[in-house]
């Protein structure tokens, strides 16, 4: 799908937590209103080239501005670091709002589960549900109290309809207990680290709830391991590629001249899945395309977001000299 790009200026920047900054963008070509769950794409210069990053729009549309939140992740990809360096007055190139995480209407009950920076799409959803008078609850997990972004806004907008869960104080949230309190016809929206999403998915299917009632969005910014450098070997091409901690496997392959196919670049569509022949370290599956069983088989890797936790991974690719048919 083609994207229409336009310019926006960074109007202000604020620290929401020690690790999360909110950035207010003033679109220069006119503001387009959006529904909760929407995101914009931003083109960021990473030095060598331009990368596209997705940022959820935080809260309900007000004031003709887009508000996004950027997490400072020392082991993140180049784009996030560039976003963290933005200053008021800087210009950025943005898309119009898009919505791949739309909030439904008319469900009997809603449960929103946010982990860390995953609060960003859920804040607007919670406020919208509150306005509608819907039955809902927001649970917001973070490490410490000070890591909860927008807490004052949540208090003011939601009152008692939200609760925090700080892992440093009371351990992780009890996902099973949480899900079992949801009305049988209810819907869950999850945004947060891969480990949280995995836990919710596992419990949800244990409970036998319909899969389409579990809504999630993951920009695949986190995995089960910290991002670290690793080696990729392609024996058929007699090629070895080093993947840096701050780049994706697919970018490293492309940089080395390997023809790759990809589309969503956030681990959803599965177009970039490549056969895995062997690996010396665990594979950090950060996509949502492969099923849990497929992950355990380790036969394929979605190279746009997934990585090896160090070591060497041996893969095949689809290039063939000969295309004879009988």
């Amino acid at each position: 799908m083609t994207t229409a790009w336009s310019r926006a200026v960074v109007e202000s920047i604020e620290d929401a937590t020690p690790h999360i900054r909110t950035v207010i963008l003033r679109p220069l070509a006119g503001f387009v209103s959006y529904a909760p769950g929407s995101h914009i794409e931003i083109q960021v210069e990473t030095g060598q080239r331009t990368e596209t990053r997705h940022y959820s729009l935080v809260g309900l549309p007000v004031g003709g501005r887009y508000r996004i939140a950027v997490k400072h992740s020392p082991d993140g990809l180049g784009g996030s670091r560039a976003m963290w360096r933005l200053a008021p007055g800087d210009h950025v190139t943005i898309s119009q709002p898009k919505n791949d995480f739309a909030l439904s209407f008319g469900r009997a009950d809603y449960l929103l589960i946010a982990g860390g920076i995953g609060i960003t799409p859920l804040l607007g959803m919670a406020l919208a549900l509150k306005q509608r008078g819907a039955s809902f609850r927001l649970v917001y997990a973070a490490r410490r109290q000070e890591d909860l972004a927008f807490a004052a806004e949540l208090d003011a907008g939601l009152g008692g309809a939200w609760q925090s869960a700080c892992s440093a104080a009371r351990g992780r949230i009890d996902v099973r207990q949480l899900l079992s309190t949801l009305d049988a016809a209810g819907e869950v929206y999850v945004c947060g680290p891969m480990t949280l999403l995995d836990a919710v998915k596992a419990e949800w299917s244990q409970l036998g709830r319909p899969l389409e009632r579990l809504r999630f969005e993951s920009f695949a910014s986190s995995g089960h391991f910290a991002a670290m450098p690793f080696e990729v070997e392609l024996p058929r091409l007699r090629l070895k590629v080093s993947v840096g901690a701050h780049e994706s496997m697919i970018d490293a392959l492309a940089r080395s001249g390997v023809a790759v196919m990809a589309d969503c670049r956030r681990g959803e569509c599965g177009l970039c899945a490549l056969p895995v022949l062997s690996a010396t370290s665990p594979i950090d599956h950060r996509d949502v395309f492969l099923s849990e069983a497929e992950r355990q088989q380790n036969a394929r890797i979605c190279a746009c977001v997934s990585r090896a936790a160090g070591g060497t991974i041996v893969i095949d690719d689809g290039y063939r000299d000969r295309h004879d048919i009988l």
């Binding site: 791949d100 739309a102 389409e212 599965g270 949502v288 395309f289 492969l290 099923s291 069983a293 497929e294």
Partner: peptide, 10 residues
């Protein structure tokens, strides 16, 4: 031809 459903699909 896949075991999961793209979460964006609707």
């Amino acid at each position: 031809s896949q075991k999961t459903i793209n979460p964006s699909a609707r």
